[in-house]
Amino acid sequence: MKAKDYKSRVKPIWCPGCGHYSVLNALTKAFSQLELNPVDTVLVSGIGCSSRLPAYINTYGFHGIHGRALPLATGLKVARPELEVIALGGDGDGFSIGGNHFIHACRRNVNILYIVMDNEVYGMTKGQASPTTPELWDQSKLTPRGPEVPPFQPCAVALAAGAGFIGRAHSGDPKGLTQLICQGMDHPGFAFLHVLSQCITYCPEQQDWKSITHEIPPVTSDRALAMQNILQDDGFGKGIFYCQPRAVWPHLPGGAILTGPSSGGTDQIEEIRQQFAVHADA
């Protein structure tokens, strides 16, 4: 299938100039390159501008509630491991209301790709500061002096929490973005892709991202070195910070997989029921 065949006929609600258009294009390109079968692919999202994306792609999708894309994707992937499951959303969805799920998804290492389209702002609610907003960004009435707290560090948190693949891309670099999506999908286990995806409606200064993003040191499997690279980076470095596969969860014994409601013979159920039987004294 060609990239355009992965697009649905639903028209995006995004503003002109929104970085998410590029992410949508890059996803369809990556799907085409990987020859994904749309029928066996599911995009799961939360709430926010970027979380609208699943409806725009011609695969199965679940547009859930604010902050909960990761657990929903986790339940689906564990129940149906043969499916290709991608979770996605924005910075508020993933790092604020869904922050706990982000940490535990990194730890758990279920085989899904998580794409966060980070524009450092809550766009859908009209421009409030998000966890990644610069400390002194004073453009929101809700935080007139700026958030006054240092921004959340998604890649550092992901690494500390145990993610085996951590990359950053920029929506203004569609080629690099497509490549990172493919690499993230190929990674066995939880892959975190931090995408700088500008919101020029509320943060017009983000148009400069194109000129300030830069390459990072080569990918490493050394966790300490990766942490050093992440912490030394200014937040605009693009590439893979860390890649080191580890055991994918769940570790099902004997390679058993869940095959749906028809699984489990009546014999096994009868055996399970027998634990309650009381054997009368002779």
Partner: peptide, 19 residues
């Protein structure tokens, strides 16, 4: 799960998958 919010969303994920 990491909390009840995650637990019920995992249930929905599986339910959406037909399990």
């Amino acid at each position: 799960a990491e909390d009840e919010l995650a637990a019920i969303n995992m249930v929905l994920g599986a339910g959406f998958g037909g399990v």
